[in-house]
Amino acid sequence: MKVIFLKDVKGKGKKGEIKNVADGYANNFLFKQGLAIEATPANLKALE
């Protein structure tokens, strides 16, 4: 799953980066902790 990092995550990505991560990692950790959002077309456009 492609995500946009909202904060730096050690060993995974930095704020503003768009990366592929495992679905479970994104859903169970990144999204719940507010560290990333899904890289949907709307979210990508808002990032610009």
Rank of each mutant, 00 (worst) to 15 (best):
residue 47 L to C: 07
residue 25 Y to D: 04
residue 17 E to M: 07
residue 38 E to L: 10
residue 12 K to Q: 15
residue 21 V to G: 02
residue 14 K to R: 12
residue 2 K to F: 14
residue 15 K to L: 07
residue 45 K to E: 12
residue 42 A to T: 10
residue 43 N to P: 02
residue 9 V to N: 01
residue 46 A to I: 12
residue 37 I to H: 04
residue 8 D to T: 11
residue 33 Q to E: 13
residue 43 N to C: 05
residue 22 A to T: 13
residue 3 V to A: 01
residue 4 I to V: 11
residue 21 V to W: 02
residue 42 A to K: 09
residue 40 T to E: 04
residue 13 G to Y: 13
residue 1 M to Y: 08
residue 38 E to F: 05
residue 23 D to F: 15
residue 38 E to Q: 09
residue 9 V to E: 02
residue 18 I to L: 07
residue 11 G to H: 08
residue 38 E to K: 11
residue 16 G to H: 07
residue 15 K to M: 10
residue 18 I to D: 01
residue 6 L to G: 00
residue 43 N to F: 07
residue 9 V to I: 08
residue 7 K to A: 12
residue 27 N to A: 13
residue 39 A to K: 01
residue 10 K to P: 15
residue 15 K to F: 06
residue 19 K to C: 07
residue 47 L to G: 05
residue 27 N to Q: 13
residue 33 Q to H: 15
residue 20 N to A: 14
residue 22 A to K: 14
residue 48 E to N: 13
residue 29 F to Q: 07
residue 24 G to I: 13
residue 18 I to M: 07
residue 4 I to E: 01
residue 43 N to K: 05
residue 10 K to C: 11
residue 17 E to Y: 02
residue 37 I to Q: 06
residue 4 I to M: 08
residue 12 K to H: 15
residue 43 N to D: 03
residue 16 G to D: 07
residue 45 K to F: 08
residue 41 P to E: 14
residue 45 K to W: 09
residue 27 N to M: 13
residue 42 A to S: 10
residue 12 K to D: 10
residue 30 L to R: 00
residue 27 N to R: 15
residue 23 D to V: 15
residue 12 K to R: 13
residue 12 K to N: 10
residue 4 I to C: 00
residue 44 L to I: 14
residue 6 L to P: 01
residue 13 G to M: 02
residue 34 G to I: 02
residue 40 T to W: 01
residue 42 A to L: 09
residue 34 G to R: 06
residue 5 F to P: 01
residue 20 N to V: 15
residue 3 V to L: 03
residue 44 L to T: 06
residue 36 A to V: 07
residue 12 K to W: 15
residue 42 A to H: 10
residue 21 V to S: 02
residue 47 L to P: 06
residue 39 A to Q: 02
residue 19 K to Y: 08
residue 22 A to C: 11
residue 16 G to Y: 10
residue 31 F to N: 03
residue 31 F to P: 04
residue 48 E to F: 13
residue 37 I to N: 02
residue 5 F to M: 04
residue 32 K to M: 12
residue 31 F to R: 00
residue 18 I to Y: 01
residue 38 E to I: 11
residue 2 K to T: 14
residue 38 E to N: 04
residue 30 L to C: 03
residue 3 V to S: 00
residue 33 Q to D: 08
residue 3 V to F: 00
residue 34 G to H: 10
residue 46 A to N: 11
residue 26 A to G: 06
